[in-house]
Nucleic acid binder design. Structure first.
Lengths: 342, 342
DNA sequence: GTCGATTGCGTTATCGATTGCACGAACACG
DNA sequence: CGTGTTCGTGCAATCGATAACGCAATCGAC
């Protein structure tokens, strides 16, 4: 049917050249208002739509940015995307989503792909096991802004927007101490990742600062899953001197722990306090709402997008930024004792 | 630094023409294997990356597809995106995400935008209040495949992948009847949307088929929110003849209802059975897991993507498809009586 | 009335890759 | 030895939009 109309079609219809049409559409001052009006009218009449590919090829700017993350259907990541999208869309950018499934090879692939597609920037969270950083340097070598969020890697030339995981963990642990808990366990996930390492460090430091001391036996590494949380909780409670509180780096693991603790007849928060991390939606829906550290994912996305926009503007001054967002502890019933000085 | 390398750079380095390089890279049989080898080597040496924009402009295929949905950070939608992405990425397509925030104007805007960007197809779920379908027809007029998922609109030339909401609702209601409940209420959201209308119809028909009859007083329209669910449940229980079961078209509303029912001392499922819709993650995490109808969003995304791929292939035969996926009722504690013949 | 400035628009090259057509060389065959 | 093939590659146009440059016409000022 109606194939795409181009500026040439408009030009032909008006017996002028494509250049004039282009200028008219771009409101160039050198074009008479009469001609402009004519062009705009016929453009509408012929249902003309600018071909952004042609523009992109000519200008070298695709007006696309890539967002690379492990997996999209997780609350945290989908919120980040939303933040990015809402910041970038009004500026005329489109957002291309790519998943890595936490696989380094896939990560390198999608990045190649995005570079081929001439994206104007890449906003990403690294795959869990990425060791090699060659594909990141490729990005920077091509002068494409690279902004990490949440899970970053320190590379010269790349920016990052992260959460102050350390502080979030510190505050969560401090909060547990304030509730009168002195034997606080910690579930970590993978301390080779900065975020989990920082959560652990924050936890540890809070203990030390309160002269509680760090007990190695209270530290368990596990997957971010309910079942893992249950099992780990079981291990904890079978210790000679079981803990009476838990700061989990994962909400799901925290939930699993709570389920187990209830099973064995403990009352939460009276006998045992729990704080999770991520502020997953379900934490507030439970009959026993779970305290958790909020990561403000949407803000993180928006911030990363803003950093990108800055980098694009000042192509001369290479402003690499390291932005650290403040966490926000959501205190709920799982750690709210009516009588904290128990 | 290292600006982008083009086939011309390779050509210059080897003292041949760009055409030859292009053919060599595309493994054209007319090129000698010697030349091919040389080209491939220098391509690697110069760190050549194909510019997909140029290819896209030339071929008219951008290898991008747009995914348009109300909002991305909702479980259902982010899962659909994942399905689409995983189906399309291996085929060389990139996925561009756009949110409408359920606003008709925004929807028209992003579609225009996607058309300008020359996407090869659009996969979308319509905004809640969209009445005007002009922007959809624009898409079809440009011969761009249009595939609706979940929330569709019937337009000649567009395909759709939806859930059998009617059947899901019917089965859920039947299940409640099987539990011995005869006074079954229904929370609906917005019956101007097909999906909610169908859920209502399925509910109603199940009642009629069991000679229970439809009681207008048991039907409430509300927002998909916890608070709304609570209020609606309150209204229900204040009726002269309150219901003893609820089929809610929304999981959140179902949760709200459960919270209220517990507050007033009812036992679930003994005194009152509840089934929700969407199988949101939280439904299975609760202390009282909530029965719900699963929409298999990832499958929906994959299916929509497959339909797109078919349409692209057979550009001659305009194969518009209407695919309806089967729902799957997840029975959990909120509707599992130990003694159904109560 | 002359000259420089401004207005309005056309010419042409360009972005990077692809492709139909053409062309020279080598080779086969009768 | 002449003619038809095949092979390997170059030439040039093309996709759609933009921009540097050029040129004719008009305008204003002295």
């Amino acid at each position: 049917m109606s194939k795409k109309t181009t500026i040439y079609d408009i030009a032909k219809a008006l017996n002028i050249t494509a250049a004039t049409v282009s200028r008219a559409l771009n409101d160039n001052p050198r074009i008479s208002s009469d001609t402009k009006k004519l062009v705009l009218e016929t453009a509408k009449k012929l249902n003309y739509k600018q071909n952004r590919l042609a523009l992109a090829l000519k200008s070298g700017k695709s007006k696309n940015v890539g967002v690379v993350l492990p997996i999209i259907n997780r609350n945290f990541f989908s919120n980040v995307i939303r933040g990015v999208e809402e910041e970038l869309n009004p500026m005329g950018y489109n957002v291309i989503i790519c998943q890595t499934h936490d696989d380094e090879k896939k990560e390198a692939d999608v990045i190649q792909n995005l570079l081929n597609a001439q994206v104007d920037g890449i906003i990403m969270s690294i795959a869990r096991h990425t060791k090699n950083t060659g594909h990141f340097e490729q990005v920077l070598k091509k002068n494409v802004p690279l902004i990490f969020f949440d899970r970053k890697v320190d590379i010269k030339g790349a920016s990052s927007v992260t959460l102050d995981d350390y502080r979030g963990a510190y505050e969560a642990t401090q909060h547990l101490i304030d509730q009168g808990c002195a034997k606080i366990a910690h579930f970590t996930v993978d301390r080779s990742l900065e975020i989990y390492k920082n959560r652990f460090e924050g936890y540890k430091q809070a203990l030390l600062d309160s002269d509680i001391g760090f007990n190695e036996k209270y530290l368990l590494g596990l997957e971010s899953k309910i079942e893992a949380g249950k099992e780990a909780a079981k291990k904890l409670m079978e210790l000679a001197d079981p803990p009476n509180a838990l700061f989990s780096a994962s909400d799901l693991a925290a939930l699993g722990a709570i389920q187990y603790l209830k099973e064995i007849g403990l009352c939460i928060p009276e006998d045992f306090c729990v704080v999770g991390f991520s502020n997953e939606p379900f934490t507030q829906f439970m009959e026993l709402p779970i305290s958790s550290v909020d990561q403000s994912p949407m803000l993180m996305g928006r911030t990363a997008a803003k950093v990108f926009l800055e980098q694009i503007d000042s192509d001369t001054v290479k402003t690499k930024k390291r932005i650290v967002l403040a966490p926000s502890l959501k205190i709920r019933k799982s750690s709210s004792r009516s009588n904290p000085t128990l």
